[in-house]
Amino acid sequence: MALAPNMPKSWRAETKPHKFCPGCGHGLVLKALGECIDELNIQDRVVFGCDIGCSLLSWDFFNVDSIQTHHGRTTPVLTGVKRARPDRICIAYMGDGGGYAIGSQHLVNAASRNEKITVILVNNCVYGMTGGQMAPTTLPGMKTETSPYGRDVELTGNPTRGPEMVAAITPPSAYVARGTVANLRQLKKMIKKALETQMNGTGFSFVEALSLCPTNWRTNAKETWGFVEKEMSQFFKVGEIKVPESKEGK
């Protein structure tokens, strides 16, 4: 089997190796995204925005124009770009805290308005950058720095199922999926479809990627993969949730 190229063309070699922790899932998601940018040949049209939290470490990741924004505010910044320059392909990249907590109103309303942008949200069940606090996506019973005895859903509610929420409020022309870094081919297909949805101008596109945080999970390699493939995937069902209806009809 031939080896895949080391780096997508749209990656910025000068800023590699990247700044994420060993074992982090961001590099994998950004690799899938980079390959999609290459294959769709859109490097000159992409405006990339990243949030606060670990995702901000991608601020100089690509050879594309990039804006590092504030926590939760990547969605409105990229919405602002898209509304002013509809020919740009706008990608808002964030974590679960940015998308489902501090920036949830922006995600909900951008989805409701069917903004023609692509949101890629990396779900690793914790706040990584700030040191492993409970996130909207922390699983029931899961121990974090602010749920040291395990997340009690009676006190803190259930984890946010973001794609299901977004699918419920977007029109049929939107694209919504949940992928996982444990299945990179599938994740890449999803990101590609999301970008194509934006390029076709039909609607909002949203991909949640289940990802890894061995640093804050305090897991070894085997446990890390076990957590994403079993626990996380059991609670957060992987797959396409909404695919734009074909223009030709069925």
Partner: peptide, 26 residues
């Protein structure tokens, strides 16, 4: 010319930031 009614003023401020960064007099 264009208009976007946002979900709140946090968003109105940040969409303005995005519009300006893209080169629009916003």
């Amino acid at each position: 010319r264009r208009f976007l009614q946002t979900e709140d003023e946090i968003s109105a401020g940040f969409t303005t930031v995005g519009g300006v960064l893209s080169g629009a007099r916003a």
